[in-house]
Write a protein that binds this DNA or RNA. Sequence first.
DNA 1: TAATAAAAAGCAACAATGTTGCAAAGTGGT
DNA 2: ACCACTTTGCAACATTGTTGCTTTTTATTA
Lengths: 147, 147
Amino acid sequence: MHHHSSPNIEQEIGLLLRHNNLSITDSRKKILQLFFAQEGALAHGDIEKKAGEKFDRVTIYRTLQTFVDKGIIHTIPTADNSIRYALCKDACTEGHHHDHHIHFVCNQCQHTFCLDDVVTPEIKLPKGYNATHVEVVVEGVCKNCTA
Amino acid sequence: MHHHSSPNIEQEIGLLLRHNNLSITDSRKKILQLFFAQEGALAHGDIEKKAGEKFDRVTIYRTLQTFVDKGIIHTIPTADNSIRYALCKDACTEGHHHDHHIHFVCNQCQHTFCLDDVVTPEIKLPKGYNATHVEVVVEGVCKNCTA
DNA sequence: TAATAAAAAGCAACAATGTTGCAAAGTGGT
DNA sequence: ACCACTTTGCAACATTGTTGCTTTTTATTA
């Protein structure tokens, strides 16, 4: 399980923000904590539910956007109009995401996971098409629900 | 270009609806015409723009939902909260979609295409994960824009 | 530590998108 | 032409996302 509640998560979060030239604010810390405490991806709505009493909706929108811009989190496409966000584990930088792993959506628990060890395959495209990014989303039953 | 305006499109649409046990109505015909006249996928918003003066927004929502349920169209996930829809070319039936092709989103013209000849690859998942469906969305520059 | 400039958060108002119940209109079958 | 059933349009509402502006917070300097 990835649920560290180690005392230096706080520190780690501070460093992460500082490395990205972001000032350290309550909302940024709180939202990053949610991501660190979570195995899987979060939608805006999830964050609003978990942190919404403390923070304005607008702040959450803007914070997520900032994190995406800085390469701290990445988006995961969905077919239900609720973009998911997850921490970038590869070396992403401002304006350059390098997430080559696939994503898994569980039909049972509805959670979305980054399978960091499964890289996106090469796709052979017809003539004239040039790929810059390949996104793979696999649906099915996850490890926790298979049991 | 795929813009047939052949006289039997109308017939084809009628048959398609009848085969799916759907009554033939103006909005269903119009929306199917848009899909047939279009190389690429459509979002709800696109359809609303092109047919919105004639039909209520609610009707468009309900019609798209009906078509998805019947296996006439399928959804394409996106990371911008605007689900795209495209005609199913494989043999989809009510409750059973069999679209194994990949999707391509052009960064230049912003259109989304079904590459019907490119099948989704096998993905090897970690132990415990079971796949029921694999969705591949490739981003890049399409045939028309490469020129 | 206090003062300050810059950045972020909060607020309010708004825009866009999606949903529901119900009455009116249209469809297919007799 | 009639009838049962389905679909549409309307209205009202809920949810989600955006924008401008004021207040608060942050990081930095003295």
